[in-house]
Amino acid sequence: MSKKNNTAGILAGLLAGAAAGVILGMLYAPEEGKETRKKIKTKASDLKDQAKNKYDEVSEKVKDQYGNISSTFKETANSVAHTVKDGYDKYKDQIVSKTADVVKNVESELNDLK
C-alpha cells in the first residue's frame, strides 16, 4: 500500500512541478497579459486532462490487480479447504476404525476377567 501512496505522491509532485514551471515560464514571457492568461488556461486544462487520464489508467490497473489477487486468493482458499476436508475424512475413518478395535479389545479383556 505504501508503494501506491509513494507513486501517487511522486505523480502529484511531478504534475505540480510541471504546472508551476509552465506558469512561471509564461508569466516571464514577453507577451501581452491577455495572451499569457489564455495560454495558462489552455495549459492548465491540458494538465488537468493529463492528470485525469493518468488517474484513470492507474485506477484501471489497480482494479485489474485487485481482481487478480482476489481470484488467486479464492482459488487458494478453496484448495486449502479441500485439502483439509480430505485430510479430515481420511483421519476420521482411521480413528473410527481404531476406536472400534479398542472397544473390541476392551470388551474382550472384560469378558476374560469375568
Rank of each mutant, 00 (worst) to 15 (best):
residue 21 G to D: 08
residue 12 A to S: 13
residue 39 K to H: 12
residue 18 A to V: 10
residue 25 G to P: 00
residue 17 G to L: 00
residue 21 G to E: 07
residue 22 V to R: 02
residue 23 I to H: 04
residue 32 E to K: 08
residue 27 L to G: 06
residue 17 G to T: 12
residue 30 P to W: 07
residue 37 R to T: 07
residue 29 A to E: 02
residue 13 G to M: 03
residue 32 E to I: 04
residue 16 A to N: 10
residue 39 K to C: 01
residue 16 A to Q: 11
residue 15 L to A: 11
residue 15 L to W: 12
residue 13 G to E: 00
residue 25 G to A: 08
residue 34 K to M: 11
residue 39 K to M: 01
residue 33 G to C: 03
residue 21 G to A: 05
residue 11 L to K: 03
residue 25 G to H: 04
residue 30 P to D: 15
residue 25 G to M: 05
residue 19 A to T: 10
residue 32 E to G: 06
residue 27 L to D: 15
residue 29 A to S: 02
residue 22 V to D: 09
residue 13 G to W: 04
residue 34 K to L: 13
residue 17 G to K: 04
residue 32 E to Q: 12
residue 13 G to Q: 03
residue 30 P to V: 09
residue 32 E to W: 04
residue 22 V to N: 02
residue 33 G to F: 13
residue 24 L to M: 13
residue 12 A to L: 06
residue 21 G to N: 07
residue 36 T to W: 06
residue 27 L to Q: 15
residue 31 E to I: 14
residue 34 K to D: 12
residue 16 A to S: 08
residue 17 G to S: 07
residue 24 L to P: 08
residue 24 L to C: 05
residue 27 L to Y: 13
residue 15 L to D: 00
residue 22 V to L: 10
residue 29 A to W: 00
residue 18 A to K: 07
residue 37 R to E: 10
residue 24 L to G: 14
residue 29 A to V: 06
residue 34 K to R: 14
residue 38 K to I: 07
residue 30 P to G: 14
residue 12 A to Y: 07
residue 36 T to N: 02
residue 24 L to E: 13
residue 31 E to R: 04
residue 13 G to K: 05
residue 36 T to Q: 05
residue 14 L to R: 12
residue 22 V to H: 08
residue 24 L to F: 06
residue 31 E to W: 12
residue 30 P to A: 15
residue 26 M to D: 05
residue 20 A to K: 08
residue 26 M to Y: 04
residue 16 A to W: 04
residue 33 G to I: 11
residue 11 L to H: 00
residue 40 I to K: 01
residue 22 V to S: 07
residue 29 A to K: 01
